[in-house]
Design a protein around this nucleic acid. Structure first.
Length: 593
RNA sequence: GCCCCCAUAGUUUAACGGAUAGAACAGUGGUUUCCUAAACCGUAGAUCGAGGUUCGAUUCCUCGUGGGGGCGCCA
């Protein structure tokens, strides 16, 4: 084999979807063969500030410090050892950073190679595929979905899409709250008022919710009522036919109302196994946990203490109430076992409000001890928690009269507001088209508002902000997509047609756009690692900004064929990346806005 | 009382222990015979306080201040 063949080999071999992996690999291979570095040297390759290059390797600094070497000299040694490549230039900067500046040849080959959703998807597949249950949304039956459920639904769906895109097997499970105390209260109210469930009118779920609220007041006012309500729950859980029948009807009414919302949001569950599904699986939990001495009787209840934990050694995890009824801790335990033993899942992701962190910490600790005692491999358990949506007053969002905001009302208002924007822009559009666009813009805006910032933060709900055309919003991203489509209409071509170019990115705006495209894989990986969709959102916003800049500076429809072909290619790639990214966030796009 | 989370421009926020802390909105100044100006380009402005670890701290540790949340039969 001649040298030129080897070089050619490098040239094609190293164009990977994630350029930082190429750089990481070549550094590791090089240092492994050198006496100056220990095996396992970590190059710490990161995207670099534009001023310094495209990627940087920071690993020399800590390594040199530990080895008592001069970092700049060591960096120079490494650079000298690296095989010559026409894919990048290197230099040493500051105390010992190694900067990699990718060549125009690299950019050109990269945008040629990752030309559609399939090539990108193939390139991002994980090596160790997992079977992951994503437990999200989880509304309570007998109540309407309200804003409190939107974050779980939107974040959960987005993570499910991302992990699925990366090659994991995803099971979406809607863990309905259909077996808890609220049923005791509701059944009590139904009986007290002598209500017939088949005569609730055209908004049955709203009627039930009012009834529940009324029941809740009765229970609060009078101890006897509370005892009666708890009694109804115990009867239900013991299989009382009348209560079971009522319960089933309530569940059906609730599911109808949930499904209409899930349809709007493009969410489909593989399972909706609520707490009730586990009602005959809780006895085994009590037996096993008692047998392993993981739980104990305390004040009539069955509780788990964790002596090895500073707080949970005293704060109990109640798995059976003193009246004998199960609670959500019980069903959550049974649920883990079911997902592991029946579905063979090796990972479970729970998407809930941050206020449940203690519960999940206790649950996970208990599960680990339990599985260990049973000699069963414990699935990886992750609690993906999020902050609260706040109103103008910086308190949890409520309607004026203090009621929770119904999710359907919120989504409808967003669509209404988007409709006004669409009509203002294109007054002559047909009504159905106005509505189609309004849905995509309005629902996208609500979704993106939730996904664009760190999920652990609370955020203040603002129509003006989420529907703004400027700034980090869904309409801005959708507008970038629409403009790209517009270009393809003008040049009478399709974005998904095969486009190629012999001309590398050259001008400032071409290079910057191409450069931003290369960071897509990094954004996906970081989002998956942290389970935080805002990393992807921030990236897409930066890409859209870069595109808008390019759009203003670099006209696509130019005479020079080479330049035109390159710019068409950049537009097509930008569109592909934006569409993949937005789809993962659950946001639809428009060809025209 | 115990514990958890948060604190970055006027406001909303980004930053996997790395270089001169990056944006957006609101200010302010500009760009349109040109693929959607719902856009783009300038400009000004920030790490709660005090210690510590580190070659390097918005990031890690300790203490303090301020805000939010959780702690026995709700989920």
């Amino acid at each position: 084999m001649t040298l030129s063949v080897i070089m050619l080999g490098y040239r094609t071999m190293f164009i990977e979807f994630d350029p930082s992996e190429s750089i990481d690999r070549i550094i590791r291979e090089t240092t492994a063969k050198s006496n100056d570095f220990e095996v396992g040297f970590n190059p710490q390759v990161r995207p670099a500030d534009e001023r310094f290059g495209d990627f940087q390797a920071n690993g020399i600094l800590p390594y040199a410090k530990k080895a008592g070497l001069n970092p700049r000299e060591l960096a120079q040694k490494l650079i000298d050892l690296l095989p010559h490549s026409d894919l990048w230039e290197t230099d040493i900067a500051g105390p010992g950073f190694i900067n990699f500046k990718l060549s125009s040849s690299f950019f050109k080959q990269w945008i040629d190679k990752f030309h559609d959703i399939n090539s990108i998807k193939n390139a991002i597949q994980v090596e160790n595929q997992q079977k992951i249950v994503v437990d999200f949304s989880s509304p309570n039956t007998a109540k309407q979905m309200h804003v409190g459920h939107i974050r779980s639904t939107i974040i959960g769906e987005s993570l499910a899409r991302l992990l699925g895109f990366m090659g994991h097997e995803i099971i979406r499970d809607n863990h309905l709250g259909d077996w808890g105390t609220q049923f005791g209260i509701l059944l009590f109210a139904i009986k007290k008022e002598n209500i017939s469930l088949s005569e609730l009118g055209n908004d049955p779920i709203a009627k039930l919710e009012n009834l529940y609220r009324q029941g809740n007041n009765w229970v609060k006012d009078d101890e006897d009522n509370l005892i009666q309500a708890r009694g109804e729950l115990v009867k239900l859980q013991n299989g009382d036919p009348e209560n079971l029948d009522l319960w089933q009807k309530i569940k059906d009414i609730s599911m109808d109302s949930f499904l209409s919302i899930y349809e709007m949001l493009g969410v489909q569950f593989d399972h909706s196994l609520g707490e009730s599904f586990y009602r005959d699986k809780v006895e085994l939990i009590y037996e096993q946990l008692l047998a392993h001495k993981i739980c104990e009787e305390n004040d009539g209840a069955l509780v788990v203490f964790h002596p090895d934990h500073k707080r949970f050694s005293k704060q109990p995890f109640i798995i059976r109430k003193s009246d004998g009824a199960s609670n959500y801790a019980t069903t959550d335990l049974a649920t883990v076992a079911f997902r592991k033993n029946e579905w063979q899942s090796n990972q479970i992701i729970y998407v809930t409000d941050g206020r449940q962190r203690d519960h999940f910490e206790q649950l996970f600790m208990t599960v680990q001890k339990w599985f260990s005692a049973e000699k069963n491999a414990c699935p990886l358990l992750k609690h993906v928690w999020f902050g609260t949506i706040l109103g103008d007053d910086n308190k949890a969002i409520k309607t004026r009269d203090g009621e929770p905001v119904k999710l359907i009302d919120l989504l409808s208002e967003s669509i209404e507001r988007a409709k006004k924007m669409v009509i203002e822009k294109k007054p002559d559009l047909e009504g159905s088209e106005i509505l189609r666009r309004a849905k995509i813009i309005g629902l996208g805006a609500v979704r993106y508002a939730d996904l664009s910032q760190d999920r652990t933060l609370d955020y203040v709900f603002s129509w003006e902000k989420m529907l703004a055309m400027q700034g980090n919003t869904a309409p801005y991203l959708q507008y970038a997509v629409a403009r790209i489509h517009s270009i393809f209409r003008k040049i009478e071509s399709k974005p998904n047609q095969h486009h190629s170019t012999e001309y590398p990115p050259t001008t400032d705006s071409e290079k910057k756009l191409a450069r931003k495209l290369l960071f897509f894989s990094g954004a996906l990986k970081q989002t998956a690692k942290e389970l935080k969709p805002h990393f992807l959102g921030t990236y897409l916003y930066e890409l859209a900004t870069e595109f808008s800049s390019f759009y203003n500076q670099s006209k696509v429809m130019v005479e020079e064929k080479e330049i035109k072909s390159l710019r068409i290619l950049l537009c097509a790639r930008t569109l592909t990346v934006l569409e993949i990214g937005l789809n993962i966030l659950g946001i639809d796009t428009l060809e025209e806005m």
